[in-house]
């Protein structure tokens, strides 16, 4: 059995007694990816924040790289977090810092990364080139559009080349063209670096791009993973409903589901 990257064991997180996620269990083995679907306020963001220890569970345990993080000290937790990249729902760029400083932030502040100071600029530029925003180094987040900020957020999440990347609603509120570009970037990051990807989204199409496409380094674009439209193994869907995990399985199972809530997320052709 491959090592587990992220495991939830019966996790409940509440705010003022109201559970935001309740009794959630799942396991992501190394090298696999997950797509989290769910209505608004179903607890998707809370799930991601709990996964990196920003929120503490009231019950249950969270394991990162096999280590129980529920009782960990700030120091140890932050060393584990250095191996994880996260895109926040509203990008959460630091608005007092330039784009360059934003992307450099994890390199300069994560203790366990120790990036030599003279390499920081080159890595930041490379990471921004990946999202095609290398010309915005000197700008401030407020000068960028929402889609550009998302891309900077993706660059910041990936600049340290983490083993796991968590994306919270990367395409929410964007036009279809920008949304697809962003999905292409996420697939590219996943395939170029073989990173475990957990993506929260409301769009089933995003999930399909994740499961059906691969990044082809030769043509430098996304290609269908297989001729007959089968999905990539090891990419599964999770569906959240009112704080509970109501479905876990591959795309085919999701499409077959007759549950009215779950099937609402599936795009009917």
């Amino acid at each position: 059995m491959p090592d587990s990257v992220l495991r939830f064991e019966r996790v409940t997180v509440s705010f003022d007694g109201n559970p935001a996620i309740e009794d959630v269990s799942f396991d992501i083995p190394a090298g696999e990816s997950r797509i989290v679907l769910g209505a608004a306020a179903s607890g998707k963001s809370v799930l991601l924040k709990t996964a990196i220890g920003l929120l503490r569970p009231d019950h249950g345990r969270v394991f990162l790289f096999g280590q129980d993080i529920t009782g960990l000290k700030v120091r140890e937790l932050s060393d584990l977090r250095a191996r994880i990249g996260m895109l926040f729902q509203e990008s959460a760029l630091f608005d007092s810092l330039t784009i360059e400083e934003n992307v450099a932030y994890p390199l300069e502040n994560q203790r366990s990364i120790r990036c030599p100071a003279e390499e920081v600029h080159a890595r930041v530029e490379e990471s921004l080139r990946f999202v095609e925003l290398e010309h915005t180094l000197e700008k401030f987040p407020s000068e960028l559009s929402g889609g550009m900020r998302r891309r900077v957020g993706i660059a910041r999440a990936n600049v340290t080349e983490p083993d796991v990347v968590l994306y919270d609603s990367p395409t929410a509120g964007l036009d279809p063209i920008t949304a697809n570009n962003i999905m292409a970037l996420i697939v590219k990051e996943r395939d170029v670096r073989k990173a475990t990807t957990v993506m929260v989204t409301q769009r089933f199409q995003d999930g399909q791009i994740m499961t059906k496409y691969r990044y082809d380094p030769r043509s430098q674009s996304l290609e269908r993973a297989s001729g007959n439209g089968a999905s990539i193994a090891g990419i599964r869907f999770l569906v959240m409903k009112e704080g509970r995990l109501v479905f876990e399985g591959a795309e085919e199972e999701l499409e077959k589901s007759t549950d009215p809530y779950i099937s609402k997320f599936v795009l009917r052709h």
């Binding site: 920003l54 977090r81 996260m86 509203e90 959460a92 630091f94 932030y105 994890p106 994560q110 910041r156």
Partner: peptide, 11 residues
């Protein structure tokens, strides 16, 4: 705007 969370997430 979740910048505090981001700060913690980024070490």
């Amino acid at each position: 705007t979740e910048q505090i969370d981001a700060m913690r997430a980024l070490g």
